[in-house]
């Protein structure tokens, strides 16, 4: 099975790789894993005035998982918190042309977005 050109591009030139300090104001962190393959993904958002101004990821897993999270961070930037919650794994599958056996990578990315948003919300509510 060959990776699509877009996957290879994200894999070779990952966008927004890195991390923020978890405790930092407005930062939401989502860490998720796929028990089937053992991939672990960390995705963080930085929110100001309800808008995601920056996003970063670190993924330890296969090319598709890395590409999915890299793409997710690209999409997240500039979106409001509400819009971000609407990103679906099927959007990622379509954009990256993922084959059926790699769909769980896109699910992982959606889960990571949800977890990061939930973490941000929790932090915001507790203030």
């Amino acid at each position: 099975m060959a990776y699509s050109e877009k996957v290879v591009d994200h894999f070779n030139n990952p966008r927004n790789m890195g991390s923020f300090k978890k405790e930092e104001d407005g930062v939401g962190t989502g860490i998720v894993g796929a028990p089937e393959c053992g991939d672990v993904m960390k995705l963080q958002i930085k929110v100001q005035n309800d808008t995601i101004v920056d996003a970063k990821f670190k993924t330890f897993g296969c090319g598709s998982a890395i590409a999915s999270s890299s793409l997710a961070t690209e999409w997240l930037k500039g979106k409001t918190v509400e819009e971000a919650g609407k990103i679906k794994n099927t959007d990622i599958v379509q954009e990256l042309n993922l084959p059926p056996v790699k769909i769980h990578c896109s699910v992982l990315a959606e889960d990571a977005i949800k977890a990061a948003l939930a973490d941000y919300q929790k932090k915001a509510d507790s203030k």
Binding site: I31, V32, G33, V40, K42, K58, F60
Partner: peptide
Amino acid sequence: FEEILELQ
């Protein structure tokens, strides 16, 4: 997960 990320 935290432990794995740190190790990585």
